[in-house]
């Protein structure tokens, strides 16, 4: 919090200063959002046994994701793709540094380990940590945090008072749902439990899980009115939003689940029906994450 008060004191604080505070928040975000994964045994193990082409794909796919996300909620209010790219790289870098630091602190990385094991462990953790770094910037920012930038930024994040109307466009909305789903999925997908639950569930449980996930998604965003809740114009029937946002959102959550499970090698040599079950299981937290992302981001 000292950073925030310092920021308030320095009325006309320089760009550099503000940027450094942004970095600090990013690092805090990387820790906050990355910690559950940094303390997950399965992810350490994945770090050395994951096939390298899958890890590569995960790391590369993270770049456009961060760039688009940075365009929404960057370290600075970004207006160009170049700035968004810069912010994305800063977040990725912070994710890598924080992951490495925490893994060393936890004694999970030791100097006598082979280099590829160290790199693998850090690389796989850097993905959620980098998303956390970007989210930390936007969510830990707080209302008093940026004196001048704050107001401007909040409006910008919202998209309706600012020229870049595109920011709440349909594809962007689906993208944010994807990020939310991905984030929660990365938390739970590596654990043994997802697979175990899918084996314990009967098809009837699976159907119930699908229906409950969709209901949660819709309820989260439209019914229970959290802050940032989306409103429908009065005369529009409820099922408009259901078809236009909730169902596509659920499909996005399922796709992300499929992607994450494949990355972690959970679907190898598995029959199609058996693949569907863990995807449905993982889509439950995915749906919650997707809905939350629409509210928070």
């Amino acid at each position: 919090m000292s950073g925030v008060t310092a920021a308030q004191r320095g009325g006309d604080m320089g760009e550099t200063r503000r940027f450094l505070i942004g970095i600090g928040r990013g690092a805090a975000g990387a820790m906050l959002f990355g910690m559950p994964m940094l303390m997950t045994m399965e992810l350490w193990q994945l770090g050395f046994y994951i096939e390298r082409y899958r890890l590569f794909l995960l790391l590369v796919a993270n770049i456009p994701l961060l760039v688009v996300l940075a365009d929404r909620i960057g370290f600075e209010r970004t207006s160009t793709w170049r700035e968004a790219f810069r912010d994305a790289m800063i977040a990725y870098g912070l994710g890598i540094v924080m992951s490495a630091a925490v893994l060393v602190l936890l004694g999970d990385i030791k100097p006598d380990m082979p280099l590829s094991e160290m790199l693998g462990k850090i690389a796989i953790q850097s993905v959620p940590a980098s998303i956390g770094a970007l989210l930390g910037r936007s969510q830990l920012g707080g209302q008093a945090g940026d004196d001048r930038g704050g107001e401007q930024e909040d409006k910008g994040g919202d998209g309706d008072a600012v020229p870049n109307e595109i920011s709440t466009s349909y594809s962007r909305e689906l993208f944010l749902m994807g990020v939310g789903a991905l984030f929660l999925n990365l938390n739970v997908a590596p654990t043994e439990e997802i697979i175990l639950i899918s084996y314990k569930m009967t098809p009837w449980h699976a159907i119930a899980a699908v229906i409950v996930s969709i209901a949660i998604m819709h309820g989260f965003v439209y019914a229970v009115a959290f802050k940032g809740t989306h409103e429908m114009p009065e005369e529009t029937p409820w099922w408009h939003a259901f078809f236009r946002f909730t169902l596509p959102g659920y499909m996005v959550a399922m796709l992300i689940s499929l992607y994450v499970l494949w990355i972690f090698g959970r679907l190898d040599d598995t029959a199609v029906t058996q693949m569907l079950m863990p995807v449905i299981v993982l889509s439950v937290p995915g749906a919650v994450g997707a809905a939350a992302a629409r509210l928070i981001l």
Binding site: D158, D160, K227, E231, F243, R244
Partner: peptide, 29 residues
């Protein structure tokens, strides 16, 4: 006060792509 201003209102006349995506998703589900 910012929370009050952070309300999103869905557009009244959505693009046809939104309905198409919704329809495909519904069929898939």
């Amino acid at each position: 006060t910012t929370t009050a201003s952070r309300r999103h209102t869905e557009t009244e006349e959505p693009h046809w792509v939104e309905w198409a995506t919704g329809l495909i998703s519904a069929l898939l589900v």
